[in-house]
Design a protein around this nucleic acid. Structure first.
Length: 290
DNA sequence: ATAGGAATAT
DNA sequence: CATATTCCTA
């Protein structure tokens, strides 16, 4: 089921297999910089799970549910690994950025889920296939695609919007949506180096609307303007040449802008649009989930 | 080492 | 004045 036939990178590195929850596995994987490392770890884990499945298959009558969990986990991870393969083989760093974003959302979701039911592992594993292979998001590709349109793709118009309220992203985008993966990625690297300008002295980072949009996107993925830290933002943004300090400065300025706007709004001065396009969810008005 | 803030520079 | 960089501190 989980494309276990053609595993090309069977590097025999499995010295110590540490069982983890899927949440922890995803978190670990997301810490790696390049796709190859991610692939190795994921593939190794899949191999281990398959071995375990083979082991318990002798007891399939006594442990039907365990077998089902294992199979579903393997399938889910296999789908993710296929996605990694596809991205690594065909595309460039832009899709890797999508993948990192995807992993961060996944990790965040699992952490929330884990915090919810402290019984943890079993429920977590059991709920996994519903998320990965739901009717609405059959594959990871669809999942990533949907993540650009719906900030909370984990709940396809279902109930239990606890995660949505935690994230603070209650679908405020009325028509804009997120960044389209194909639309605006070209304009992000502002290193055009036009030959006929002394702009090469211009080492100052200019935050184009596209770049700022990606900044906001990263901000909201991480979990709000207060939670986000410059390093995290830089990692999620995945913009070549963007430094920590630049993001930090931009974040500082953005926070100041938000504070100023919020203060003005409190005093009654109204709503004027600025080029910052603040995401309108600075502090949630405590949405009681209905 | 990193984040937040403030001073300084463009 | 707005914005980006640099310096300072915790």
């Amino acid at each position: 089921m989980a494309s276990s036939s053609s595993l090309e990178l069977n590097l025999g590195l499995k010295p110590s297999f540490v069982p983890k929850t899927i949440a922890n596995l995803l978190k670990d994987v997301s810490n790696f910089e390049n796709a190859v490392d991610k692939l190795i770890v994921l593939n190794d884990y899949i191999v281990q799970l398959e071995g375990e499945l083979n082991n318990i298959s002798a007891f399939k009558c006594q442990l039907p549910q365990s077998m089902l969990f294992l199979m579903e986990d393997i399938e889910a991870l296999g789908t993710l690994k296929d996605k990694f393969m596809h991205i690594k083989n065909e595309m460039g760093p832009e899709n890797e950025r999508q993948l990192i974003k995807f992993l961060r959302m996944k990790t965040k979701f699992y952490e929330e889920k884990k915090a919810d039911n402290q019984n943890g592992d079993f429920i977590e594993k059991g709920s996994l296939p519903h998320l990965w292979n739901s009717k609405h998001h059959k594959t990871c590709e669809h999942f990533i695609q949907a993540s650009y349109e719906n900030p909370n793709p984990f709940e396809p118009s279902s109930s239990s919007s606890r995660f949505a309220s935690v994230d603070g992203t209650t679908t405020n985008n009325n028509g804009e949506g997120g960044l389209n993966p194909r639309a605006g990625d070209q304009t992000l690297n502002c290193n055009p180096k036009p030959p006929t300008q002394p702009s090469w002295k211009n080492n100052r980072r200019s935050w184009s609307p596209q770049l700022h949009a990606r900044f906001l996107e990263a901000l909201h993925i991480i979990g709000g303007i207060q939670m986000a830290t410059p390093k995290q933002i830089r990692e999620v943004m995945q913009v070549e040449g963007l430094t920590n300090d630049q993001v930090k400065s931009h974040l500082q300025k953005y926070r100041l802008h938000c504070r100023r706007l919020s203060g003005n709004n409190a005093r009654g001065l109204g709503n004027y649009q600025d080029p910052w396009t603040p995401p309108t969810i600075l502090h949630r008005p405590f949405n009681p989930e209905g």
